[in-house]
Amino acid sequence: MTIVCAAYRRSILADPRDADLKLRAHRDSCAECAEFSQRVARFESRLARALAIDLDAAAGAARPFRARRAGSGYRGAGVGRRGWMALAASLTMAIGVAAGLWLAAPRASLAADVVTHMAEEPQAWRSTDVPVSSAALGAVLHDAHMRLTAKAGLVSYANSCLFRGHQVPHLVVQSDGGPVTVMVLVHESVPAEVQFADSGYRGVILPVPGHGSIAVLTRGAADRATVERIAARVLGAIVWTA
């Protein structure tokens, strides 16, 4: 292992998303570091899934504001020191907020799930002018009963991903503003356009009548107008085959 190999590996073990340009160039020219990078990416995908545990589901539909467990060692904000009026005010507010949260069911939103999924495939976010093989792209699109016209632009990544219990196409399209991820969510309907900005990602989920929805997201400095323009372009390039 050379000094550059060690620097590259140390760098991606600290932040797999963000090796600097020189180190990334080294990876592209070093088979051992490329192989190491793939192993780290697989481990990172598992780590993201492990941390994104659905606590409410796992714990059996726990309530957002439930009674404190005896002996949990937690004493909160010192209720005993407050006067009874402060306690009553807190309880009134807590009950109001809790009722709202409980009625709305505490599951992650579609946008939040899309963003979480991004962390599982960090290797997809690459600026490149190398298109994914037509065979790989064709297989992913065929399974989703769709194809893309050239209007979509250069597709550099295509994978069929498990998302909310369904296999969905996960594509990366190259744009002037860098790589853009597209997820075709045939099983997820949204009543109207959903804009979101979360964890460094900016995106939009658009309803697709008869075919669920499509999520388009970027990371970095892309503004809302850019995301909407790319979403419209990709949507216009989809041809449904079923």
Partner: peptide
């Protein structure tokens, strides 16, 4: 970093 998407 991994769960919340924070940068360094």
């Amino acid at each position: 970093q991994v769960l919340m998407g924070y940068t360094t």
